[in-house]
Computed example of a mutant assay.
Amino acid sequence: MDFLKLFSKEPPSKDVAKERLKLILIHDRANVSPTFLEMLKSDIIRVISDYAEIDERGLEIKLTKAGEEGISTPALIANIPIRKMKDTAK
Rank of each mutant, 00 (worst) to 15 (best):
L59M: 02
V32Q: 02
K14D: 15
A66G: 11
D28Y: 13
S8T: 05
E53C: 03
M1W: 07
A89L: 10
S33V: 11
K62Q: 10
F36Q: 15
L4P: 00
E68I: 13
S42L: 09
P74N: 13
E53K: 08
F7Y: 12
A66L: 04
E10G: 04
E69W: 05
K65V: 11
I24Q: 14
G58D: 09
V47A: 12
T35C: 01
K84E: 13
E60Y: 07
K5W: 06
L6G: 09
S42P: 00
A30P: 00
D43E: 15
E68R: 13
S33Y: 09
L25Q: 11
T64H: 05
I44R: 00
K41F: 00
I48S: 08
E56V: 12
I44S: 02
D2I: 08
I80V: 14
D15G: 08
F3E: 11
D28F: 13
M1H: 11
H27L: 09
I24V: 14
R57W: 00
A17G: 07
I82N: 08
K22N: 11
K86H: 12
F3T: 12
Y51Q: 05
I48H: 02
K18Y: 09
I61N: 05
P11H: 06
K90T: 13
T73K: 11
R57M: 09
L21M: 12
S49I: 00
V32C: 04
A75H: 03
E19Y: 07
N79R: 08
D15L: 07
D50L: 08
E19S: 11
D15W: 02
L6N: 12
P74W: 09
E19L: 05
D28Q: 14
D15I: 04
R46Q: 10
E53P: 01
A30R: 06
E19R: 12
V47N: 03
A78N: 02
D2S: 13
D87T: 12
K41Y: 01
P12I: 15
P34S: 10
L25Y: 07
M85F: 10
H27P: 00
